[in-house]
Design a protein around this nucleic acid. Structure first.
Lengths: 142, 142
DNA sequence: CCTTGACCTGGAGCTGACTCCAAGTAGTAT
DNA sequence: ATACTACTTGGAGTCAGCTCCAGGTCAAGG
């Protein structure tokens, strides 16, 4: 399978696939006799794994560390678990951050819609840059 | 309140605070007569709002758009809602990505721990680079 | 008066993750 | 034979978001 097909199937650009290979995230791919990459199913598995991790924001150097351990053999499983567990912690932390922001966004959207909804047909007096307007724009639910 | 105190209270570096101001995320802060920034409570509110949004990954240009609308007056509320709603969508999408990755991580950690736990006291034969080992390292639960 | 320390500015530098480019080659179609 | 297309490489460029630095100002303390 050539790079264009992999690119299509995974939704990663050919440049990105080559970049991942250069960075050591993906093992050197087999080549046909004219030097063109010929991806195997196993390569795809690895690429999809990387892609999933990258989508969630795991940094490339951490992923490289992991795949290097995999390539180093079974005796590295302890270290691998450690990496995975640590990254899970990071993701959970990110989840919490995002959830907090979502809560704030929901609160503000509500606030705005209540302000805008009822009074918005007509007769809505622009309060201009009042402290209250600022509060509404930025404040948390306290 | 001077920049050092704000930095301390928000956990943002003084450089970052100045950078946010330069970028228009934070309104030009009042200065004392020797040109030193003197933050007011209202500034803090805005900064904390920005910080919360940034933690979740909202891009600076989007936030700038929002704060510019706020400064432009009440008639921009419709546009503000639109931004907030759109960003909420983005965050929900990110949540899904992260959740998917978490699922995969949990699956793999389990897998590794089952492999490592029972057999790890002794007599664990290193299977080296078998296809199965690769599968374990990368494959999704299918 | 002199030093110290916190602040100021404009601008350069850095990191991470791509993304693009020029120049070259190999296989296929006309 | 020639054109076309998809691939190759090494290296440069881009973007976001900080982060650092040199050189300068000011107020307080010894």
């Amino acid at each position: 399978m050539k790079i264009a097909e992999v690119s299509e199937r995974c939704g990663l650009s050919a440049d990105t696939l080559r970049f991942y290979e250069r960075s050591g995230l993906v093992r050197p791919v087999a080549r046909d006799r004219s030097g063109v990459r010929d991806y195997a199913e196993a390569d795809l598995m690895r690429i999809e794994f990387i892609q999933c991790m990258r989508k969630a924001g795991l940094p490339i150097d951490v992923l490289k560390e992991y795949v290097d351990l995999v390539d180093a053999g079974e005796h590295t499983m302890g270290d691998r678990i450690q990496i995975l567990v640590e990254q899970r912690e990071q993701l959970l932390a990110r989840m919490r951050d995002i959830q907090q922001t979502l809560d704030l966004l929901n609160y503000k959207i509500d606030l705005y819609q209540n302000k805008l909804g009822p009074g918005s047909k007509r007769g809505r007096r622009p309060v201009k840059d009042s402290a209250r307007a600022q509060e509404m724009a930025y404040a948390a639910p306290t």
